[in-house]
Computed example of a mutant assay.
Amino acid sequence: MLNKTLVPQSVARKIQGMIQTGEFQSGDKIPSQREFSQQLGVSRASLREALLTLETLGLLETETGRGTFVVGGKPSSSSHMASWRYSDSYSAFDVFQTRIMLEGRITSLAAGRLAASQLDQMENLTQQMEECWARQDLLSNVEADLEFHAIIASSCSNAMLRSLYQMVREQISETQRHPIPITEPARMRASIAEHRRIIAALRAHDGLLAQREMENHILNTARCAGLAP
């Protein structure tokens, strides 16, 4: 599990840092995967996953036959989203549509089951999202978002829905990263406000309202990505 998640995440963070500090500048071509994996001391598989994550976030762009290039380190610095990674199995539309149904119901069934410490953690994660966006730390912004949604899913009273969420979590996570390159500051502010409304409904143990807030949040994210399930 460590190699599958933590190592690529660490590598992606290191490369993002190289972009932010100017070691890699906009337009620079990054080294070949063989050379770069040796330089960073990681496997090519871990590097490849890290590069895919950074490409989804709009920090890198791969040009067929030419290599991978730095796009930039600022939010909304790219004018388009990366190719959808799971097109061979599910479209982004399908995943967003599934998220609305699955996470909406999960959220309603988590109401009244989340501990005060979990709700406080969700508040902190939402604050982290806001702060990380402001300092252009896109990786940490998305990681906080992923954890926010995962906490809710972990508290769902239906074990099968919890399992279904884990089964499709990779695809769900990609829909949380995918719109980042075209996300305007106003949309990020709105998304953060939506998180806080979800937390408020969960604190009030109002499952129906929490469900509606989550469904609205995911629908607005889909619209940001140019989709309307």
Score class of each variant (00 low, 15 high):
Leu2His: 15
Asn3Met: 11
Lys4Leu: 05
Val7Lys: 11
Val7Asn: 06
Val11Cys: 02
Ala12Ser: 12
Ala12Lys: 03
Ala12Asn: 08
Arg13Lys: 12
Arg13Asp: 05
Ile15Thr: 00
Gln16Leu: 09
Gln16Arg: 10
Met18Ile: 05
Met18Asn: 08
Ile19Gly: 01
Gln20Ser: 10
Gln20Met: 15
Gly22Glu: 03
Gly22Leu: 07
Glu23Asn: 14
Phe24Thr: 02
Phe24Ser: 01
Lys29Thr: 09
Ile30Val: 09
Gln33His: 10
Arg34Gln: 13
Glu35Met: 09
Ser37Met: 05
Ser37Gly: 07
Ser37Thr: 08
Gln39Thr: 13
Leu40Ser: 04
Val42Glu: 00
Val42Phe: 04
Ser43Pro: 00
Arg44Lys: 12
Ser46Val: 03
Leu47Lys: 03
Leu47Asn: 06
Glu49Asn: 13
Ala50Glu: 01
Ala50Ile: 01
Leu51Tyr: 02
Leu52Cys: 10
Thr56His: 06
Leu57Phe: 06
Leu59Gln: 03
Glu61Ile: 09
Thr62Ser: 10
Arg66Ala: 11
Thr68Lys: 12
Phe69Lys: 07
Gly73Val: 08
Lys74Phe: 12
Ser76Cys: 15
Ser76Gly: 13
Ser77Trp: 06
Ser78Ala: 13
Ser79Glu: 13
His80Tyr: 14
His80Gly: 08
Met81Ser: 08
Met81Gly: 05
Ser83Tyr: 10
Asp88Pro: 04
Tyr90Arg: 11
Ala92Tyr: 01
Phe93Tyr: 15
Asp94Arg: 07
Asp94Pro: 04
Asp94Ser: 11
Phe96Thr: 00
Thr98Ile: 12
Ile100Ser: 10
Leu102Cys: 00
Leu102Asp: 06
Leu102Tyr: 08
Thr107Lys: 03
Ser108Val: 04
Ser108Ala: 15
Ala115Arg: 14
Ala116Val: 11
Gln118Asn: 12
Asp120Pro: 10
Asp120Glu: 14
Met122Cys: 03
Glu123Phe: 05
Gln127Tyr: 07
Gln127Ala: 14
Gln127Val: 03
Glu131Asp: 12
Trp133Tyr: 13
Ala134Gly: 12
Arg135Thr: 15
Arg135Tyr: 13
Gln136Pro: 04
Gln136Asp: 14
Asp137Ile: 02
Leu139Gln: 09
Leu139His: 09
Asn141Leu: 13
Asn141Val: 11
Glu143Cys: 07
Ala144Lys: 02
Leu146Gly: 04
Glu147Val: 07
Phe148Lys: 03
Ala150Pro: 09
Ala150Glu: 13
Ile151Gly: 07
Ser155Val: 05
Asn158Ser: 15
Asn158Asp: 15
Ala159Thr: 14
Tyr165Asp: 04
Tyr165Ala: 06
Met167Ile: 10
Arg169Val: 01
Gln171Ala: 07
Ile172Val: 14
Thr175Ser: 00
Gln176Ser: 06
Arg177Trp: 07
His178Pro: 10
His178Tyr: 14
His178Thr: 02
Pro179Ser: 01
Pro181Arg: 00
Ile182Asn: 00
Arg189Ser: 13
Ile192Asp: 00
Ala193Ile: 08
His195Ile: 00
Arg197Thr: 09
Ile198Phe: 09
Ile198Glu: 05
Ile198Thr: 05
Ala201Leu: 01
Ala201Lys: 06
Ala201His: 03
Ala201Gln: 03
Arg203Ile: 02
Arg203Asp: 02
Ala204Pro: 06
Ala204Trp: 07
Leu209Tyr: 01
Asn216Thr: 14
His217Arg: 04
His217Tyr: 07
Ile218Val: 08
Ile218Met: 04
Leu219Ile: 09
Ala225Asp: 04
Gly226Met: 04
Gly226Gln: 04
Gly226Thr: 09
Ala228His: 15
Pro229His: 05
